[in-house]
Design a protein around this nucleic acid. Sequence first.
DNA 1: GTCTATAAGGTGATAGAC
DNA 2: GTCTATCACCTTATAGAC
Lengths: 205, 205
Amino acid sequence: MMPGKQPRTRIQKKNTETILEAALEVFSQHGFRGSTLDQIAKAAGLSKPNLLYYFPSKVAIHRALIDELMQNWLDPLRKIEADGEPVEELLAYVLRKLEMAREFPRESRLFANEIVQGAPNIMDKIEGELKSLVDEKARVIEGWIASGALAPVNPYHLIFSIWSTTQHYADFDAQVRAILQPEGDAHFEDAAAYLDTLFRRMLTP
Amino acid sequence: MMPGKQPRTRIQKKNTETILEAALEVFSQHGFRGSTLDQIAKAAGLSKPNLLYYFPSKVAIHRALIDELMQNWLDPLRKIEADGEPVEELLAYVLRKLEMAREFPRESRLFANEIVQGAPNIMDKIEGELKSLVDEKARVIEGWIASGALAPVNPYHLIFSIWSTTQHYADFDAQVRAILQPEGDAHFEDAAAYLDTLFRRMLTP
DNA sequence: GTCTATAAGGTGATAGAC
DNA sequence: GTCTATCACCTTATAGAC
């Protein structure tokens, strides 16, 4: 009777997922304001009122998507282990982020759309969860530097540069492809090699 | 009688500029679809019909803004001199781009909004002007590498990484400030130092 | 659970007075 | 050149039949 929170039947679960998949496609391409329920309904193969049977409002669909995204978005950063080999831990993080940009470009653009516009819906999560995690990992990095296993570097700007260089291949995909012209996804291999070199030279003591 | 192309009087020129300034503020924050003429009119201190006296339509305002932006956007890249000292030329380019992110964050976000959404209005300029310029500078960089003055590096991905790391401080400003908390613009100094080190280590043979 | 019909409000653009 | 008034359309959301 009132789905949206916890779908009961198989059909409800399936439709909820179909809607979120369609909404991801639309929101990531046009932003929140630029997307309409008509577009999402059409992409989901449902009628507009039926859409609103599963979610109470447009903003509820967007919120569900953002919540789901924030769950997974920080995983690669969480995986950095304080007792690993510093340079390799960070290079593995770079590769994981690049892999996410290739596998989940729509999620990356959904996030980018949100931040570029001032993060109106996720500022609490950024100031809370995200900042805490970054602070924690920054201390790990500082520890590595103190031990001499890592070249001295501002940990926050290091993390920013890892985010920006990797997410660039998802968020600015249209520009990247226009400049590299014919190649399909082949440039991801080159990007991986380039970023490995870039950060290896930066981080090796 | 028909401004928008070439304003004749001083008042027309001033109003046109006021409108573009207001439109930059609004479009860069909300994207094209998310912005309304009401918002722009209010920000410009004009009535909506008066706005449409100076520009024939909403899209015309946006186009004027984008055209103006593309004029200046490529300047820092153009300034790279083939007969300069390679590493210093490129590091100066990094600094110029970072300076632009600090001075013109709204322009950067206007551009980012456009690209993230697939560059619907500027794909021709990206495939034309921008690509040509990047190809040209890529050849310059390859020449430097061949001469041994620069470490071997993929010139295209080098340029992408310079764009992404510098523009990040404008486009993802909300996130950067949330994570670095109290500091105002102070982090730009740290960013400049960090990026100088990052690219110096990458590029020095 | 899903549809048609429609309400209610916003939005781009125009007409016409001043 | 600038305003008030207004049109035509689009968009979110709801009501009610089936």
